[in-house]
Amino acid sequence: MHLTDQAIEELQERRGKETMSMAWLADRLQYFIDLNPEFEIPIDRLSTWLARLDDPDDE
């Protein structure tokens, strides 16, 4: 198991029942980058990927 897998599982366990807006997520990602600028490229890639996902209702 990768460390990322463990982190994702922790996120699901701790926050999985919460509802959040994409605006809230974008704010949290921006705050994270402000504190950790070395992660700008991975967060940019994740944000772009999330923004371009197809609508699940279209499948």
Rank of each mutant, 00 (worst) to 15 (best):
T19W: 09
E13W: 06
K17Y: 13
K17L: 14
D5M: 02
Q12T: 07
R28V: 04
L3Y: 13
Q6C: 11
R14C: 06
Q12I: 08
W24C: 11
A7F: 02
R28L: 02
T4V: 10
L11M: 09
T4C: 05
R28N: 04
E9Y: 07
S21P: 03
L29C: 03
L11P: 01
A7G: 00
G16K: 03
K17I: 08
A26F: 06
D27M: 07
W24F: 15
A26R: 11
E13C: 11
E10K: 14
W24V: 10
T4N: 08
L3V: 11
L25C: 01
L3H: 13
L11Q: 03
E10H: 12
A26I: 09
R14L: 10
M20E: 12
Q6S: 14
R15C: 15
H2W: 06
Q12M: 09
G16T: 02
G16P: 01
I8H: 04
L11S: 05
Q6R: 14
R28W: 00
I8C: 06
T4A: 11
M22F: 11
Q30H: 13
R14N: 10
Q6Y: 13
Q30L: 13
A7S: 04
E10T: 07
L25E: 04
S21N: 03
E18S: 12
A23E: 12
R14I: 03
Q12K: 13
H2P: 12
S21Q: 05
R14D: 08
Q12A: 07
T4D: 05
E9T: 04
Q30N: 15
T19V: 13
E13L: 15
L11Y: 07
G16V: 00
Q30R: 14
Q12Y: 05
M20C: 10
A26S: 15
Y31P: 00
I8P: 02
A23L: 09
E13Q: 15
D5K: 00
H2A: 10
L3R: 12
Q6K: 14
A23T: 13
R28F: 01
Q6H: 13
A7Q: 07
E18P: 02
L29N: 05
L29Y: 01
E18W: 04
H2R: 05
L29V: 04
E9V: 05
Q6D: 14
R28Q: 08
E9H: 09
E9N: 08
T19Y: 07
I8G: 04
I8D: 02
A7M: 08
A7E: 05
W24P: 04
S21V: 02
L25P: 00
Q12E: 11
M20S: 13
R14M: 08
S21G: 05
W24K: 14
A23Q: 11
L29D: 00
A23Y: 02
H2G: 06
H2N: 10
Q30D: 14
G16C: 03
I8L: 09
I8N: 00
R15N: 15
T19A: 11
L25V: 02
E18T: 07
A23K: 10
L25F: 04
G16A: 05
W24N: 10
T4Y: 08
K17C: 12
D5A: 03
I8Q: 02
E9S: 08
M22V: 13
M20F: 15
Y31W: 07
Y31T: 10
L11N: 05
E9L: 08
E9M: 07
E9D: 15
T19Q: 13
T19S: 12
L29R: 03
Q30P: 02
R15Y: 15
L11D: 00
Q12G: 07
R15S: 15
